[in-house]
Amino acid sequence: MCTMIASTKTVQGSGKGATGWFPVTQSSVGYDHASHFPEEHAMLLDFVNYELGTDARVAVELNLASARALVAQLQDAIERAELAGV
């Protein structure tokens, strides 16, 4: 099914895509049809900068378990960084 589950945020950072590093301006998180991952659906993570073109994109497709693990991993790293005060 097409879930149409997707949200987009403005972000600051850099990503490395097909043509090298570029500043990313938006992140998109969706759960819908995968393009490459061999399951019907995947957590679709995209970091893009459409001022630079449609292909200014870093894409990752994960299954739900991996997405949950990533959330925990991110949260843990954020907390440690904040504790470290850096």
Binding site: A6, T8, Q26, S28, G30, D32, S35, H36, L44, D46, V48, Y50, T54, D55, R57, A59
Partner: peptide
């Protein structure tokens, strides 16, 4: 797939 990702980003 890049165009589809853009469709998702733009809603």
């Amino acid at each position: 797939d890049d165009a589809t990702a853009k469709m998702r980003v733009l809603g």
